[in-house]
């Protein structure tokens, strides 16, 4: 997989198929991006599991925190890692010990570890790096268009008005895979320099 520019169908396929998402580094602080990504994905119907050893015994929007991936009592479709790039590898190593394996490992906006991605992909796990699933869901459903964001999708179909808790259709016509070209090039240059 080219991790500089993902085809929309790759992202769409992931968001349409996964049901349970373990969020590593989920924060109970309501101004942290992990908090509102967690909240949004829960509202869109995903089975969300907060993973953070510092908050075991507490709940995030009614879901109990667990200390680690191996403490989760059910199969996980996707692991969403809200940690810096330098903390990715141990999470991926732990993920590779799970049975069954997760189908997807997703690293948040700003996080990228190509070596960890290669290890996960070598056992058939799909990997997304430096993206936010909330933004991608909002983009492919065009809900993010309320904020003037270029969804890079078109549709001549009448969609229902989005309400809380509704799953949205992500099957709009894409106008170019992955990210916009210029912003992709900039991200690639940055990752090559670092």
């Amino acid at each position: 997989m080219n991790h500089d520019a993902y085809p929309d169908n790759y992202i769409r396929g992931i968001l349409n198929s996964v049901k349970s998402i373990a969020m590593v580094g989920a924060s109970p602080v309501n101004v942290r991006p992990s908090y509102f990504a967690f909240k949004y994905l829960a509202q869109r119907g995903y089975d969300m599991i907060p993973v953070n050893p510092g908050h075991v015994g507490k709940e995030l929007l009614g879901k109990p925190f667990v200390a680690s991936l191996s403490d989760i009592d059910r199969p996980i479709d996707m692991i969403d890692i809200f940690r810096n790039s330098s903390h990715i590898m141990p999470v991926v190593e732990e993920a590779l010990t799970l049975d069954p394996l997760p189908k997807v490992i997703w690293m948040q906006l700003g996080a990228r570890d190509d070596a960890a991605a290669a290890r996960a992909e070598s056992v058939g796990i799909k990997v997304v790096m430096n993206r936010c699933p909330k933004i991608e869901y909002g983009r492919l459903s065009s809900e993010i268009s309320w904020m003037g964001v270029n969804s890079r999708t078109l549709s001549s179909k009448r969609a229902p008005a989005p309400t809380q808790g509704m799953r949205l259709s992500l099957n709009r016509m894409s106008v170019g895979g992955g990210d916009t070209a210029a912003s992709d090039r900039a991200a690639k240059n940055k990752s090559e320099q670092s």
């Binding site: 085809p7 929309d8 169908n9 769409r12 065009s142 268009s145 270029n150 969804s151 078109l154 549709s155 001549s156 179909k157 009448r158 969609a159 229902p160 008005a161 989005p162 099957n171 709009r172 016509m173 894409s174 106008v175 170019g176 895979g177």
Partner: peptide
């Protein structure tokens, strides 16, 4: 769903707009 890049004129007519969810306008 295929990922393809429509031309400039298609974007000039369609980008950002879809039928109104409430009325179908």
């Amino acid at each position: 769903m295929s990922d393809r890049l429509p031309g400039f004129s298609t974007l000039a007519v369609h980008a950002g707009a879809q039928p109104d969810p409430t009325t179908g306008a």
